[in-house]
Design a protein around this nucleic acid. Structure first.
Lengths: 238, 238
DNA sequence: CGGGTAATTGACCTAAGTCAACCAATGTGG
DNA sequence: CCACATTGGTTGACTTAGGTCAATTACCCG
Protein backbone atom coordinates (compact mmCIF):
# COMPACT_ATOMS: atom_id res chain seq x y z
CA UNK A 1 0.00 0.00 0.00
CA UNK A 2 2.88 2.35 0.76
CA UNK A 3 5.55 3.34 -1.67
CA UNK A 4 8.61 1.12 -1.56
CA UNK A 5 11.20 3.04 0.39
CA UNK A 6 14.23 0.78 0.41
CA UNK A 7 15.19 1.43 -3.23
CA UNK A 8 18.64 2.83 -4.02
CA UNK A 9 16.56 5.47 -5.72
CA UNK A 10 18.51 6.56 -8.61
CA UNK A 11 15.20 5.54 -10.10
CA UNK A 12 12.71 7.16 -12.40
CA UNK A 13 8.95 6.53 -12.09
CA UNK A 14 8.74 3.77 -14.67
CA UNK A 15 11.55 1.86 -13.05
CA UNK A 16 10.05 2.30 -9.62
CA UNK A 17 6.79 0.92 -10.82
CA UNK A 18 8.18 -2.18 -12.48
CA UNK A 19 10.44 -2.83 -9.51
CA UNK A 20 7.44 -2.50 -7.23
CA UNK A 21 5.66 -5.24 -9.15
CA UNK A 22 8.41 -7.78 -8.68
CA UNK A 23 12.02 -7.52 -7.51
CA UNK A 24 14.28 -6.67 -10.41
CA UNK A 25 17.88 -7.75 -10.68
CA UNK A 26 20.72 -5.45 -11.68
CA UNK A 27 20.62 -6.66 -15.26
CA UNK A 28 16.98 -5.86 -15.66
CA UNK A 29 17.44 -2.50 -14.00
CA UNK A 30 20.31 -1.71 -16.29
CA UNK A 31 18.32 -2.74 -19.33
CA UNK A 32 15.52 -0.41 -18.33
CA UNK A 33 17.92 2.43 -17.70
CA UNK A 34 19.50 1.90 -21.08
CA UNK A 35 16.13 1.86 -22.81
CA UNK A 36 15.00 4.97 -20.99
CA UNK A 37 18.15 6.81 -22.00
CA UNK A 38 16.84 6.63 -25.52
CA UNK A 39 13.48 8.23 -24.86
CA UNK A 40 11.17 9.59 -27.49
CA UNK A 41 9.19 12.69 -26.62
CA UNK A 42 5.67 13.01 -28.01
CA UNK A 43 3.47 16.07 -27.84
CA UNK A 44 0.02 16.06 -26.30
CA UNK A 45 -2.72 14.96 -28.70
CA UNK A 46 -0.39 13.02 -30.95
CA UNK A 47 -1.10 9.38 -31.60
CA UNK A 48 1.31 6.92 -30.09
CA UNK A 49 -0.17 3.70 -31.43
CA UNK A 50 -2.79 3.57 -34.09
CA UNK A 51 -5.67 1.15 -34.31
CA UNK A 52 -5.18 -1.45 -36.96
CA UNK A 53 -1.54 -0.64 -37.59
CA UNK A 54 1.10 -3.17 -36.75
CA UNK A 55 2.84 -2.43 -33.50
CA UNK A 56 6.53 -1.87 -33.93
CA UNK A 57 7.34 -2.97 -30.43
CA UNK A 58 5.75 -2.59 -27.07
CA UNK A 59 6.45 0.80 -25.53
CA UNK A 60 7.08 1.88 -21.98
CA UNK A 61 5.54 5.16 -20.92
CA UNK A 62 8.19 7.13 -19.05
CA UNK A 63 6.41 10.38 -18.31
CA UNK A 64 3.02 11.91 -18.87
CA UNK A 65 -0.38 10.38 -19.40
CA UNK A 66 -1.79 8.60 -22.42
CA UNK A 67 -5.04 6.83 -23.19
CA UNK A 68 -6.55 4.27 -25.47
CA UNK A 69 -9.40 6.02 -27.13
CA UNK A 70 -12.21 5.19 -29.49
CA UNK A 71 -14.10 7.84 -31.39
CA UNK A 72 -17.42 6.91 -32.93
CA UNK A 73 -18.38 8.05 -36.41
CA UNK A 74 -20.67 10.70 -34.96
CA UNK A 75 -17.99 12.13 -32.73
CA UNK A 76 -18.77 10.51 -29.41
CA UNK A 77 -15.51 9.83 -27.69
CA UNK A 78 -14.62 7.23 -25.09
CA UNK A 79 -11.35 6.92 -23.28
CA UNK A 80 -11.13 3.19 -22.89
CA UNK A 81 -8.20 3.09 -20.55
CA UNK A 82 -5.59 5.44 -19.22
CA UNK A 83 -1.87 4.78 -19.39
CA UNK A 84 0.25 6.19 -16.57
CA UNK A 85 4.01 6.47 -16.13
CA UNK A 86 5.64 3.07 -15.92
CA UNK A 87 2.80 1.35 -17.73
CA UNK A 88 3.16 -0.49 -20.98
CA UNK A 89 1.50 0.11 -24.32
CA UNK A 90 1.13 -2.47 -27.05
CA UNK A 91 1.52 -5.31 -24.67
CA UNK A 92 1.00 -8.46 -26.60
CA UNK A 93 2.45 -11.87 -26.78
CA UNK A 94 2.19 -12.95 -30.37
CA UNK A 95 3.94 -12.44 -33.63
CA UNK A 96 1.49 -10.49 -35.75
CA UNK A 97 0.29 -7.88 -33.35
CA UNK A 98 -2.13 -5.16 -34.24
CA UNK A 99 -3.12 -2.36 -31.96
CA UNK A 100 -6.76 -2.88 -31.09
CA UNK A 101 -7.32 0.71 -30.16
CA UNK A 102 -5.67 3.99 -30.87
CA UNK A 103 -3.47 5.27 -28.07
CA UNK A 104 -2.98 9.02 -27.83
CA UNK A 105 -0.84 11.21 -25.64
CA UNK A 106 -3.07 13.17 -23.29
CA UNK A 107 -0.17 15.30 -22.13
CA UNK A 108 3.32 15.71 -23.45
CA UNK A 109 4.82 12.34 -23.00
CA UNK A 110 8.06 10.43 -23.17
CA UNK A 111 8.18 6.81 -24.26
CA UNK A 112 10.88 4.30 -24.90
CA UNK A 113 11.06 0.86 -26.38
CA UNK A 114 10.30 -1.84 -23.87
CA UNK A 115 13.49 -3.82 -23.24
CA UNK A 116 13.40 -7.39 -24.42
CA UNK A 117 13.03 -10.06 -21.79
CA UNK A 118 15.50 -12.49 -23.33
CA UNK A 119 17.56 -13.82 -20.46
CA UNK A 120 15.80 -11.61 -17.92
CA UNK A 121 13.05 -13.66 -16.32
CA UNK A 122 12.39 -11.01 -13.69
CA UNK A 123 11.62 -8.48 -16.39
CA UNK A 124 9.30 -10.92 -18.08
CA UNK A 125 7.58 -11.43 -14.80
CA UNK A 126 7.15 -7.72 -14.28
CA UNK A 127 5.61 -7.37 -17.73
CA UNK A 128 3.24 -10.24 -17.13
CA UNK A 129 2.08 -8.75 -13.85
CA UNK A 130 1.72 -5.40 -15.49
CA UNK A 131 -0.41 -6.91 -18.18
CA UNK A 132 -2.60 -8.67 -15.67
CA UNK A 133 -3.09 -5.33 -13.98
CA UNK A 134 -4.08 -3.75 -17.26
CA UNK A 135 -6.79 -6.32 -17.53
CA UNK A 136 -7.92 -5.64 -14.00
CA UNK A 137 -8.15 -1.93 -14.76
CA UNK A 138 -10.21 -2.61 -17.85
CA UNK A 139 -12.60 -4.74 -15.86
CA UNK A 140 -12.87 -2.03 -13.24
CA UNK A 141 -13.70 0.40 -16.01
CA UNK A 142 -16.48 -1.86 -17.22
CA UNK A 143 -18.02 -2.01 -13.77
CA UNK A 144 -17.75 1.75 -13.36
CA UNK A 145 -19.48 2.48 -16.63
CA UNK A 146 -21.99 -0.28 -16.27
CA UNK A 147 -23.19 0.06 -12.72
CA UNK A 148 -21.87 3.12 -10.90
CA UNK A 149 -23.53 6.51 -10.88
CA UNK A 150 -21.67 9.71 -11.61
CA UNK A 151 -20.37 10.37 -8.12
CA UNK A 152 -19.25 6.80 -7.67
CA UNK A 153 -17.56 6.71 -11.05
CA UNK A 154 -15.57 9.80 -10.26
CA UNK A 155 -14.47 8.68 -6.84
CA UNK A 156 -13.72 5.17 -7.96
CA UNK A 157 -11.57 6.29 -10.84
CA UNK A 158 -9.73 8.82 -8.71
CA UNK A 159 -9.03 6.13 -6.14
CA UNK A 160 -7.73 3.84 -8.81
CA UNK A 161 -5.53 6.52 -10.28
CA UNK A 162 -4.08 7.24 -6.88
CA UNK A 163 -3.24 3.60 -6.35
CA UNK A 164 -1.66 3.27 -9.75
CA UNK A 165 0.37 6.45 -9.41
CA UNK A 166 1.53 5.44 -5.96
CA UNK A 167 3.18 2.38 -7.49
CA UNK A 168 5.55 4.58 -9.42
CA UNK A 169 6.00 6.91 -6.50
CA UNK A 170 4.33 9.76 -8.30
CA UNK A 171 1.44 10.19 -5.88
CA UNK A 172 1.89 12.45 -2.90
CA UNK A 173 0.26 11.20 0.28
CA UNK A 174 -3.45 11.49 -0.31
CA UNK A 175 -3.28 13.29 -3.59
CA UNK A 176 -1.72 13.47 -6.99
CA UNK A 177 -1.24 15.74 -9.94
CA UNK A 178 -4.15 15.48 -12.33
CA UNK A 179 -3.20 16.55 -15.80
CA UNK A 180 -6.59 15.81 -17.36
CA UNK A 181 -9.15 18.47 -18.06
CA UNK A 182 -12.62 17.83 -16.76
CA UNK A 183 -13.64 17.14 -20.33
CA UNK A 184 -11.09 14.36 -20.81
CA UNK A 185 -12.04 13.02 -17.43
CA UNK A 186 -15.66 12.96 -18.52
CA UNK A 187 -14.69 11.08 -21.65
CA UNK A 188 -13.08 8.45 -19.50
CA UNK A 189 -16.16 8.20 -17.31
CA UNK A 190 -18.78 8.00 -20.01
CA UNK A 191 -20.28 11.26 -18.80
CA UNK A 192 -20.62 14.83 -19.99
CA UNK A 193 -18.14 17.42 -18.87
CA UNK A 194 -21.06 19.48 -17.62
CA UNK A 195 -22.27 16.70 -15.43
CA UNK A 196 -18.81 15.86 -14.19
CA UNK A 197 -18.35 19.45 -13.23
CA UNK A 198 -21.55 19.60 -11.23
CA UNK A 199 -20.94 16.32 -9.51
CA UNK A 200 -17.40 17.30 -8.73
CA UNK A 201 -18.60 20.42 -7.02
CA UNK A 202 -20.94 18.47 -4.81
CA UNK A 203 -18.12 16.19 -3.79
CA UNK A 204 -15.93 19.17 -3.11
CA UNK A 205 -18.54 20.84 -0.98
CA UNK A 206 -19.08 17.64 0.94
CA UNK A 207 -15.35 17.57 1.54
CA UNK A 208 -14.81 14.11 0.17
CA UNK A 209 -12.38 15.42 -2.39
CA UNK A 210 -10.40 18.47 -3.36
CA UNK A 211 -9.62 19.32 -6.95
CA UNK A 212 -8.07 22.68 -7.54
CA UNK A 213 -6.09 23.43 -10.63
CA UNK A 214 -3.95 20.45 -11.42
CA UNK A 215 -4.08 18.82 -8.03
CA UNK A 216 -6.48 16.29 -6.58
CA UNK A 217 -6.67 15.22 -2.95
CA UNK A 218 -8.72 12.47 -1.41
CA UNK A 219 -8.62 13.21 2.31
CA UNK A 220 -10.13 9.94 3.46
CA UNK A 221 -9.42 7.27 0.94
CA UNK A 222 -10.32 4.36 3.16
CA UNK A 223 -13.80 5.73 3.72
CA UNK A 224 -14.33 6.43 0.04
CA UNK A 225 -13.09 3.04 -0.96
CA UNK A 226 -15.63 1.42 1.30
CA UNK A 227 -18.46 3.65 0.07
CA UNK A 228 -17.77 2.92 -3.55
CA UNK A 229 -17.49 -0.78 -2.91
CA UNK A 230 -14.08 -0.74 -4.48
CA UNK A 231 -12.51 -4.17 -4.21
CA UNK A 232 -8.89 -3.76 -3.28
CA UNK A 233 -6.88 -4.74 -6.28
CA UNK A 234 -5.06 -7.91 -5.40
CA UNK A 235 -2.90 -8.97 -8.26
CA UNK A 236 0.58 -9.77 -7.13
CA UNK A 237 0.28 -12.53 -4.59
CA UNK A 238 3.68 -13.88 -3.74
CA UNK B 1 -15.95 -13.90 -42.11
CA UNK B 2 -17.26 -17.33 -43.01
CA UNK B 3 -16.73 -20.46 -41.03
CA UNK B 4 -13.66 -22.40 -42.08
CA UNK B 5 -14.91 -25.29 -44.20
CA UNK B 6 -11.81 -27.21 -45.11
CA UNK B 7 -11.33 -28.82 -41.67
CA UNK B 8 -11.37 -32.60 -41.39
CA UNK B 9 -14.17 -31.85 -38.99
CA UNK B 10 -13.93 -34.46 -36.42
CA UNK B 11 -13.82 -31.22 -34.46
CA UNK B 12 -15.67 -29.83 -31.51
CA UNK B 13 -16.43 -26.11 -31.16
CA UNK B 14 -13.45 -25.25 -28.98
CA UNK B 15 -11.05 -26.93 -31.37
CA UNK B 16 -12.65 -25.24 -34.33
CA UNK B 17 -12.23 -21.90 -32.72
CA UNK B 18 -8.58 -22.29 -31.82
CA UNK B 19 -7.81 -23.74 -35.24
CA UNK B 20 -9.57 -20.79 -36.80
CA UNK B 21 -7.26 -18.40 -34.98
CA UNK B 22 -4.09 -19.95 -36.33
CA UNK B 23 -3.37 -23.19 -38.15
CA UNK B 24 -2.82 -26.00 -35.66
CA UNK B 25 -0.56 -28.95 -36.25
CA UNK B 26 -1.53 -32.53 -35.53
CA UNK B 27 0.26 -32.51 -32.19
CA UNK B 28 -1.63 -29.48 -30.98
CA UNK B 29 -4.89 -30.90 -32.22
CA UNK B 30 -4.20 -34.15 -30.45
CA UNK B 31 -3.32 -32.35 -27.24
CA UNK B 32 -6.62 -30.48 -27.35
CA UNK B 33 -8.54 -33.63 -28.04
CA UNK B 34 -6.86 -35.35 -25.15
CA UNK B 35 -7.62 -32.49 -22.81
CA UNK B 36 -11.22 -32.32 -23.93
CA UNK B 37 -11.65 -36.02 -23.32
CA UNK B 38 -11.24 -35.23 -19.66
CA UNK B 39 -13.98 -32.63 -19.43
CA UNK B 40 -15.48 -31.36 -16.22
CA UNK B 41 -19.18 -30.53 -16.25
CA UNK B 42 -20.38 -27.60 -14.17
CA UNK B 43 -23.97 -26.67 -13.49
CA UNK B 44 -25.41 -23.27 -14.30
CA UNK B 45 -24.86 -20.65 -11.59
CA UNK B 46 -21.84 -22.41 -10.13
CA UNK B 47 -18.60 -20.51 -9.85
CA UNK B 48 -15.81 -21.65 -12.11
CA UNK B 49 -13.08 -19.29 -10.97
CA UNK B 50 -13.31 -17.20 -7.88
CA UNK B 51 -11.99 -13.70 -7.42
CA UNK B 52 -8.89 -13.56 -5.29
CA UNK B 53 -8.29 -17.29 -5.31
CA UNK B 54 -5.24 -18.68 -6.99
CA UNK B 55 -5.97 -20.10 -10.39
CA UNK B 56 -5.14 -23.75 -10.63
CA UNK B 57 -4.57 -23.66 -14.33
CA UNK B 58 -6.13 -21.86 -17.23
CA UNK B 59 -9.32 -23.53 -18.41
CA UNK B 60 -10.81 -24.03 -21.80
CA UNK B 61 -14.56 -23.67 -22.09
CA UNK B 62 -15.86 -26.57 -24.15
CA UNK B 63 -19.61 -26.01 -24.09
CA UNK B 64 -22.03 -23.53 -22.68
CA UNK B 65 -21.66 -19.90 -21.69
CA UNK B 66 -19.89 -18.37 -18.73
CA UNK B 67 -19.20 -14.82 -17.58
CA UNK B 68 -16.89 -12.81 -15.42
CA UNK B 69 -19.14 -11.03 -13.00
CA UNK B 70 -18.86 -8.47 -10.28
CA UNK B 71 -21.55 -7.95 -7.72
CA UNK B 72 -21.51 -4.75 -5.69
CA UNK B 73 -22.22 -4.75 -1.97
CA UNK B 74 -25.71 -3.39 -2.57
CA UNK B 75 -26.57 -6.07 -5.08
CA UNK B 76 -25.97 -4.33 -8.36
CA UNK B 77 -24.58 -6.85 -10.76
CA UNK B 78 -22.40 -6.40 -13.81
CA UNK B 79 -21.36 -9.05 -16.24
CA UNK B 80 -17.92 -7.85 -17.18
CA UNK B 81 -17.32 -10.20 -20.03
CA UNK B 82 -18.88 -13.28 -21.54
CA UNK B 83 -17.00 -16.50 -22.17
CA UNK B 84 -18.13 -18.57 -25.14
CA UNK B 85 -17.22 -22.08 -26.26
CA UNK B 86 -13.60 -22.30 -27.26
CA UNK B 87 -12.60 -19.32 -25.18
CA UNK B 88 -10.13 -19.41 -22.34
CA UNK B 89 -10.59 -18.57 -18.68
CA UNK B 90 -7.79 -17.65 -16.31
CA UNK B 91 -5.51 -16.66 -19.09
CA UNK B 92 -2.41 -15.33 -17.52
CA UNK B 93 1.25 -15.43 -18.11
CA UNK B 94 2.86 -15.30 -14.71
CA UNK B 95 3.61 -17.52 -11.82
CA UNK B 96 1.47 -16.23 -8.96
CA UNK B 97 -1.83 -15.74 -10.72
CA UNK B 98 -4.99 -14.64 -9.03
CA UNK B 99 -8.34 -14.45 -10.68
CA UNK B 100 -9.26 -10.79 -10.90
CA UNK B 101 -12.95 -11.45 -11.19
CA UNK B 102 -15.28 -14.26 -10.37
CA UNK B 103 -16.28 -16.38 -13.35
CA UNK B 104 -19.62 -18.15 -13.19
CA UNK B 105 -21.35 -20.62 -15.44
CA UNK B 106 -24.37 -18.96 -17.02
CA UNK B 107 -25.59 -22.26 -18.43
CA UNK B 108 -24.55 -25.80 -17.78
CA UNK B 109 -21.01 -25.89 -18.97
CA UNK B 110 -18.13 -28.21 -19.70
CA UNK B 111 -14.55 -27.16 -19.14
CA UNK B 112 -11.19 -28.80 -19.39
CA UNK B 113 -7.66 -27.92 -18.47
CA UNK B 114 -5.94 -25.89 -21.14
CA UNK B 115 -3.17 -28.02 -22.65
CA UNK B 116 0.32 -26.80 -21.98
CA UNK B 117 2.13 -25.13 -24.84
CA UNK B 118 5.51 -26.73 -24.16
CA UNK B 119 6.85 -27.77 -27.53
CA UNK B 120 3.73 -26.60 -29.35
CA UNK B 121 4.38 -23.12 -30.65
CA UNK B 122 1.20 -23.12 -32.69
CA UNK B 123 -0.85 -23.69 -29.58
CA UNK B 124 0.95 -20.88 -27.81
CA UNK B 125 0.20 -18.68 -30.73
CA UNK B 126 -3.47 -19.56 -30.63
CA UNK B 127 -3.61 -18.74 -26.93
CA UNK B 128 -1.89 -15.43 -27.44
CA UNK B 129 -4.28 -14.46 -30.19
CA UNK B 130 -7.16 -15.57 -28.05
CA UNK B 131 -5.95 -13.42 -25.24
CA UNK B 132 -5.56 -10.42 -27.48
CA UNK B 133 -9.15 -10.95 -28.58
CA UNK B 134 -10.29 -11.06 -24.97
CA UNK B 135 -8.77 -7.67 -24.52
CA UNK B 136 -10.47 -6.39 -27.64
CA UNK B 137 -13.80 -7.65 -26.35
CA UNK B 138 -13.26 -5.91 -23.04
CA UNK B 139 -12.49 -2.68 -24.78
CA UNK B 140 -15.58 -3.05 -26.91
CA UNK B 141 -17.56 -3.54 -23.73
CA UNK B 142 -16.17 -0.32 -22.32
CA UNK B 143 -17.22 1.63 -25.38
CA UNK B 144 -20.67 0.05 -25.33
CA UNK B 145 -21.28 0.95 -21.72
CA UNK B 146 -19.65 4.32 -21.95
CA UNK B 147 -21.05 5.77 -25.12
CA UNK B 148 -23.79 3.68 -26.74
CA UNK B 149 -27.47 4.01 -25.98
CA UNK B 150 -29.65 1.02 -25.19
CA UNK B 151 -30.51 0.06 -28.74
CA UNK B 152 -26.94 0.38 -29.89
CA UNK B 153 -25.64 -1.60 -26.95
CA UNK B 154 -27.97 -4.45 -27.68
CA UNK B 155 -27.23 -4.60 -31.38
CA UNK B 156 -23.52 -4.15 -30.89
CA UNK B 157 -23.28 -6.94 -28.38
CA UNK B 158 -25.42 -9.27 -30.45
CA UNK B 159 -23.21 -8.60 -33.45
CA UNK B 160 -20.13 -9.31 -31.43
CA UNK B 161 -21.59 -12.51 -30.07
CA UNK B 162 -22.44 -13.66 -33.54
CA UNK B 163 -18.90 -13.03 -34.73
CA UNK B 164 -17.43 -14.85 -31.78
CA UNK B 165 -19.73 -17.81 -32.07
CA UNK B 166 -19.10 -18.04 -35.80
CA UNK B 167 -15.42 -18.67 -35.04
CA UNK B 168 -16.27 -21.91 -33.33
CA UNK B 169 -18.84 -22.76 -35.95
CA UNK B 170 -21.68 -22.50 -33.48
CA UNK B 171 -23.53 -19.67 -35.20
CA UNK B 172 -26.04 -20.51 -37.88
CA UNK B 173 -26.03 -18.14 -40.81
CA UNK B 174 -27.43 -14.89 -39.48
CA UNK B 175 -28.39 -16.15 -36.08
CA UNK B 176 -27.39 -18.10 -33.07
CA UNK B 177 -28.75 -19.76 -29.99
CA UNK B 178 -29.01 -17.31 -27.12
CA UNK B 179 -29.01 -19.04 -23.78
CA UNK B 180 -29.14 -15.85 -21.72
CA UNK B 181 -32.31 -14.55 -20.18
CA UNK B 182 -33.13 -10.93 -20.84
CA UNK B 183 -32.14 -10.23 -17.29
CA UNK B 184 -28.65 -11.65 -17.69
CA UNK B 185 -28.39 -9.82 -20.96
CA UNK B 186 -29.33 -6.62 -19.21
CA UNK B 187 -26.65 -7.26 -16.61
CA UNK B 188 -24.10 -7.51 -19.37
CA UNK B 189 -25.32 -4.28 -20.94
CA UNK B 190 -25.49 -2.16 -17.81
CA UNK B 191 -29.24 -1.78 -18.27
CA UNK B 192 -32.42 -2.90 -16.58
CA UNK B 193 -34.21 -5.97 -17.78
CA UNK B 194 -37.32 -3.85 -18.18
CA UNK B 195 -35.58 -1.43 -20.43
CA UNK B 196 -33.87 -4.17 -22.41
CA UNK B 197 -37.24 -5.75 -22.94
CA UNK B 198 -38.82 -2.58 -24.27
CA UNK B 199 -35.90 -1.74 -26.49
CA UNK B 200 -35.79 -5.27 -27.80
CA UNK B 201 -39.40 -5.05 -28.81
CA UNK B 202 -38.81 -1.89 -30.78
CA UNK B 203 -35.97 -3.55 -32.61
CA UNK B 204 -38.12 -6.56 -33.28
CA UNK B 205 -40.95 -4.46 -34.64
CA UNK B 206 -38.55 -2.54 -36.83
CA UNK B 207 -37.36 -5.89 -38.14
CA UNK B 208 -33.71 -5.31 -37.39
CA UNK B 209 -33.62 -8.36 -35.18
CA UNK B 210 -35.58 -11.44 -34.22
CA UNK B 211 -35.41 -12.93 -30.76
CA UNK B 212 -37.88 -15.65 -30.04
CA UNK B 213 -37.31 -18.16 -27.34
CA UNK B 214 -33.70 -19.16 -27.39
CA UNK B 215 -32.89 -18.00 -30.87
CA UNK B 216 -31.63 -14.68 -32.15
CA UNK B 217 -31.42 -13.64 -35.78
CA UNK B 218 -29.87 -10.53 -37.24
CA UNK B 219 -31.23 -10.39 -40.77
CA UNK B 220 -28.95 -7.67 -42.05
CA UNK B 221 -25.75 -7.70 -40.09
CA UNK B 222 -23.82 -5.52 -42.48
CA UNK B 223 -26.35 -2.74 -42.15
CA UNK B 224 -26.46 -2.99 -38.39
CA UNK B 225 -22.71 -3.04 -38.12
CA UNK B 226 -22.51 0.18 -40.04
CA UNK B 227 -25.26 1.82 -37.98
CA UNK B 228 -23.66 0.97 -34.71
CA UNK B 229 -20.26 2.13 -35.89
CA UNK B 230 -18.88 -1.25 -35.06
CA UNK B 231 -15.25 -1.43 -36.11
CA UNK B 232 -14.60 -4.82 -37.62
CA UNK B 233 -12.38 -6.66 -35.21
CA UNK B 234 -9.04 -7.03 -36.88
CA UNK B 235 -6.76 -9.02 -34.67
CA UNK B 236 -4.99 -11.70 -36.55
CA UNK B 237 -3.20 -10.05 -39.43
CA UNK B 238 -0.59 -12.53 -40.40
C1' DC C 1 -4.42 43.75 -23.40
C1' DG C 2 -6.43 40.22 -26.56
C1' DG C 3 -7.59 35.55 -27.57
C1' DG C 4 -8.04 30.84 -26.45
C1' DT C 5 -8.94 27.15 -23.41
C1' DA C 6 -11.17 25.32 -19.33
C1' DA C 7 -14.46 25.75 -15.67
C1' DT C 8 -19.02 27.06 -14.15
C1' DT C 9 -23.98 28.03 -14.26
C1' DG C 10 -28.89 27.99 -15.68
C1' DA C 11 -33.10 26.29 -18.06
C1' DC C 12 -34.92 22.63 -20.08
C1' DC C 13 -35.34 17.72 -22.08
C1' DT C 14 -35.07 12.67 -22.43
C1' DA C 15 -33.29 8.08 -21.90
C1' DA C 16 -33.44 4.93 -18.66
C1' DG C 17 -34.80 3.43 -13.93
C1' DT C 18 -38.46 2.07 -10.47
C1' DC C 19 -42.36 -0.13 -8.84
C1' DA C 20 -45.95 -3.00 -9.49
C1' DA C 21 -48.90 -5.79 -11.92
C1' DC C 22 -49.92 -9.37 -15.01
C1' DC C 23 -49.25 -13.17 -18.28
C1' DA C 24 -47.15 -17.35 -20.47
C1' DA C 25 -44.51 -21.32 -20.20
C1' DT C 26 -42.74 -24.93 -17.56
C1' DG C 27 -42.48 -28.16 -14.07
C1' DT C 28 -43.65 -30.72 -9.90
C1' DG C 29 -45.90 -33.37 -6.77
C1' DG C 30 -50.09 -35.50 -5.46
C1' DC D 1 -54.24 -34.94 -15.18
C1' DC D 2 -54.62 -30.85 -12.67
C1' DA D 3 -53.78 -27.06 -8.74
C1' DC D 4 -49.87 -24.59 -7.71
C1' DA D 5 -45.31 -22.52 -7.71
C1' DT D 6 -41.52 -20.62 -10.36
C1' DT D 7 -39.25 -18.30 -13.72
C1' DG D 8 -39.02 -15.21 -17.45
C1' DG D 9 -41.23 -12.05 -20.39
C1' DT D 10 -44.46 -7.95 -21.07
C1' DT D 11 -46.90 -3.59 -19.78
C1' DG D 12 -48.20 0.74 -17.63
C1' DA D 13 -47.57 4.95 -14.76
C1' DC D 14 -44.38 7.67 -12.83
C1' DT D 15 -39.56 9.43 -11.32
C1' DT D 16 -34.87 10.76 -12.00
C1' DA D 17 -30.05 10.94 -13.30
C1' DG D 18 -27.79 12.71 -16.66
C1' DG D 19 -27.74 15.10 -21.31
C1' DT D 20 -28.25 19.40 -24.23
C1' DC D 21 -27.76 24.03 -25.39
C1' DA D 22 -26.22 28.27 -24.49
C1' DA D 23 -24.10 31.74 -21.88
C1' DT D 24 -20.88 33.50 -18.66
C1' DT D 25 -16.73 33.61 -16.02
C1' DA D 26 -11.96 32.43 -14.71
C1' DC D 27 -7.43 31.55 -16.29
C1' DC D 28 -3.30 31.57 -19.09
C1' DC D 29 0.09 33.18 -21.94
C1' DG D 30 2.32 35.69 -25.28
Amino acid sequence: MTVPAAQPDRSFPALRRLAALTPLGDEATAALRRAAADARPIRARREILCEGRPITAPLLLLDGWAAQVRILPDGRRQLIGLVLPGEIMGHCGFAGPVASATTVALTDVRTCVLPDTAGLPDLGRAYAISRAMDETHLMAQVVRLGRLDARERILDLLLELHERLALSGVASGNGFTMPLTQEMFADALGLTSVHVNRTLQQSRRSGELEWSGRHVTLPDRAALRAQVGRARTVVASR
